[in-house]
Amino acid sequence: MKLPIIAIAAMLLTLAGCEQSPQPEPLSQVADFTLPEPISNNAVAVVEGPDGPTLYSFNGLKAGKSWKDTSNAAFACVIATKTCKTIAPVPVPEGRLASSAVTVAGKIYIFGGYSVAANGDELSTPEVFAFDPATGRYEQKTDMPTPVDDALAVPYQNRFIYLISGWHDEGNVSVVQMFDTLTGAWTEATPFPGTPVFGHAGGISGDSIIVTDGVASVFADGKRKFVAAKLTWRGDLDPKNPTQITWRGVDAHAGSAQYRMAAVGDEAGHRIIFAGGGDNPYNYDGIGYDGIPANPSGGFFAYDLKSDKWIELGRLTEPSMDHRGLAKAGQAYYILGGMDAEQKVTDRIVKFRISQ
């Protein structure tokens, strides 16, 4: 049977419309469990705990966002039971902001951060603790030679931990400090050759590190200014001599530089995953150094180490910023706490998956 010309045209338009329809963009989802209280700028890690894979949060900023709201609180969230509880706090006398946490050989290592005094003075702190999820106890380790906060921390060979750049009391530093979890010794690795930054993000997969964005400190008109740093560096490690890192600049990701993104390495995919982040440098309350509130990012993307290219992965259902890490458990990624679009501190846990 012959179809009328009008019917054929209608069918063609319908088919064309189907072909042109974009595929649904991968989205995150809000997990059906929350942190015991809102917290931001918190160090996060995941480890196999007594009840299975468990998300941990240490230190950070409470909902009031003042110097009084710096926290040493710690939380444990068991993924299987979808429950979160408060655990023993980090054993420091006052709260810490911008700490880093890394899991090595079943223990979580927590590095530094900074304290805030009533008069606004900030001090980079040197403490290092190893938290044992089996006992719930902290063991103090050798202090950092150069105390840093808002640094990037990555593990290597299930033994070493690198602290890359970051803020030290009065300015950013280029030093790369390597901690040996077996001996407790610190060694300096090849320095970071890029502009020294704080609040940068990155991760490690295999023998390769990616460091991107953050905030640079510059002087203009006799005044210190904090500006977003649009940069990305790749560091390739020598597995036989882990202090040696071959650094090279690579292309920056699309869009504006981001501050305090959540990030982690994806070993299976040989890529580094990034999510969220703020579009305007700020101290700790979400209001920029220029007085303009920071806006959170709604994307998650990756740097593919095989092709040396960036890959867009999806969108967050709720934009998010002020993170110190991204936790990976199984095939899922988790963002714990942070700030939302109104610079409000949240107890939300966000979860997303990506294709391999």
Rank of each mutant, 00 (worst) to 15 (best):
R353H: 11
T14L: 15
L237A: 01
H253G: 07
T81E: 13
T246W: 02
R137G: 00
A268D: 13
M11P: 00
V116R: 02
D308T: 12
L163C: 11
M178E: 13
A80V: 10
K240P: 00
F301K: 11
H253Y: 02
A74S: 15
I287E: 10
I39S: 00
A275H: 09
N280T: 15
A257T: 04
T246N: 15
F131D: 07
G120Y: 08
T103G: 07
F198K: 01
P126I: 00
V44H: 01
T142M: 00
V148A: 09
T195F: 11
G184Y: 06
A9H: 01
V154M: 07
Y284A: 02
V250F: 00
G265W: 03
P24L: 05
P91M: 02
N158C: 01
G299T: 09
Y289D: 02
Q23R: 13
N280Q: 06
I108G: 03
G52T: 12
G298E: 06
G314I: 06
M1V: 10
C18Y: 14
Q244H: 14
Q140I: 07
T346Y: 00
D221F: 04
A9F: 10
F33H: 07
K107Y: 08
N280M: 01
V215Y: 04
T81Y: 01
D132V: 12
Y156T: 06
A45L: 09
